[in-house]
Write a protein that binds this DNA or RNA. Sequence first.
DNA 1: ATCCTTCGTCGAACCGGTTCGATGACCGAG
DNA 2: CTCGGTCATCGAACCGGTTCGACGAAGGAT
Lengths: 337, 337
Amino acid sequence: MNIGEIARRAGVSRSTVSYALSGKRPVSAATVQRINDVIAELGYRPNASARALAEGRTRTLGLVVPPASRRLTDVQLGFVGSVVDAAAAHDLDVLLSPSGGDHDRSFERIVTGRRVDGVILMEILLADPRVERLSQASLPFVTIGHVEHPGASWWVDVDYGGLITRCVHHLADLGHEEVVLINRSAELVAAGYGPALRSTTGFLEATAARGLRARTVCCADEAAAGLACFEQIRAQWPAVTAAVTINEAALPGVQRALHRAGLEVPRDFSLTGVIAERLAEDFHPPLTAADVPATELGRLAVDLLLAQIADGGAEPRHALLEPPISLRSSTGARPRG
Amino acid sequence: MNIGEIARRAGVSRSTVSYALSGKRPVSAATVQRINDVIAELGYRPNASARALAEGRTRTLGLVVPPASRRLTDVQLGFVGSVVDAAAAHDLDVLLSPSGGDHDRSFERIVTGRRVDGVILMEILLADPRVERLSQASLPFVTIGHVEHPGASWWVDVDYGGLITRCVHHLADLGHEEVVLINRSAELVAAGYGPALRSTTGFLEATAARGLRARTVCCADEAAAGLACFEQIRAQWPAVTAAVTINEAALPGVQRALHRAGLEVPRDFSLTGVIAERLAEDFHPPLTAADVPATELGRLAVDLLLAQIADGGAEPRHALLEPPISLRSSTGARPRG
DNA sequence: ATCCTTCGTCGAACCGGTTCGATGACCGAG
DNA sequence: CTCGGTCATCGAACCGGTTCGACGAAGGAT
């Protein structure tokens, strides 16, 4: 069931079948009809490997994801889903590569094996060796998240710094005077994980600008850590009346700690941050937060990647999204006394 | 940078380079050394499409996942991660195909385009058209979850019926007399989703065997639905003192409803079921539940698929896992009065 | 009737690997 | 010295598509 068999049964040459399918040269209507009949009867589809070899492109995108050992957050899961859906909308397949910060075998296969036309890299670090590797392999790629010198490459990202800034202003407007940033894990910060670093920067600048006392803690991506972390905050800085967070996984623990401490949100304590929409709405009460537009980000990443593949010499393009803060009900005026 | 270039620079023929790399025929040590030097210098890796075309296999597995519009549960996410990791351990890549119950373009590309050596299908229905399609295409495949007539195909699954049965016995041993099953959505049940149906069967048989009054409700996969569902249970069947569930996504809502009703777990109400380990431990208090061994299931699925690819004529094999129930602290004796 | 286009189709080369049969060099045995 | 047998390597065919140049037939202009 290859193109030669189709050609034989339709009584034409292989090239005519190819042209009839691609439309790249005119073929008479009668011949097209005959070929289509044979194809429908045999259920033929061109062999993807052969086509990729001849055309020099695979119609496949690579998606580099964190290995399963690191559990995906809701936001990351949203990226994966939307990238896959957006690619499918262009009739492209997605090849998954689980890769840590170092390039492992799977990543190398993707990069040098010509298995994909381009790569989307998520969860990158400010100085990421994989970005370097892709550049020198001259394989088109787009990162979700941006590196230290963002002018030279293609990326999409959420403006964590800006969003955290707006969260702080929101709390300042409500009269809070001492606030804490619950960041992600110390390991991620140490490794140079952009969102964690930019959140910190934005938080410190905004609190300074508004004259607030600022506290920051790192917290592992687990409910248990969130609980411990919040109890430590209460013990260490009892005057803190509001928290800003980008750590989704810690939220259930924070909620339990609030409950255990007898604090009611937002009457006794305000909570906000950058959180996947679903989690913000599942919280009790629903969180006033910047919803990460994971779906749009994934779609944009695919669009940029396709543009880059179509025109390799084009100037790098970026998109820095700053979604609005959804006012739900987890923030309120600073409690008095 | 193809095999011909390597051959030219090493002063040998293309076939010698190929044999040196694959080891399928002896090549002198000196020649191998020379070839390896050139390869290392140029950073050569064989073109995956060309190799796939020549060998007749792609070294790639297909993974059919629900489209992103349906949010993945924690258990499903666990499957995806473990399948990808297990495949990577065998130096195989994973191609993702988002597909609903019907076969769409992405699924068809996977099946007929010879893009993959085999397929893993998750979230299948009792009568799933995709299973039919893969069978007639004679493409090796393994399902996570099993179809109505399980003898004819390869699959791995968790024994939902058996686990729910054991949950019911556990509650009966604790003295509960009226219990409810919180199932997944009515749509899934109507579509013939195996875990939902087998849970119901197991629940009804076990409660009948132990002489318990049995109630069942369907609940959409959302926190809000879980809350509404639980409040309806309290209103409609006030004598219910324990719930069994397979609906992870509804848990936050159930928790909120329990809290709102002033019920303390397990003193006033017992809760158990089949739940991803992480969620069971994030619950307050941690849930006594059967932890779905998603990681093992994914690994097993890959193992079975590789066995099937290696020997297409082999008898279909299955694995029905029945993980132990982890006794945590969400179940207790029936409250008196 | 002759020449020039245009249209539809064909054959061959090519993409970059793998694999099979053949060939030549070298060796030890007779 | 010749013969038989390894061993290492080579050339060619093949996998299944795409694409380019060429070619024959039909049609229009002169």
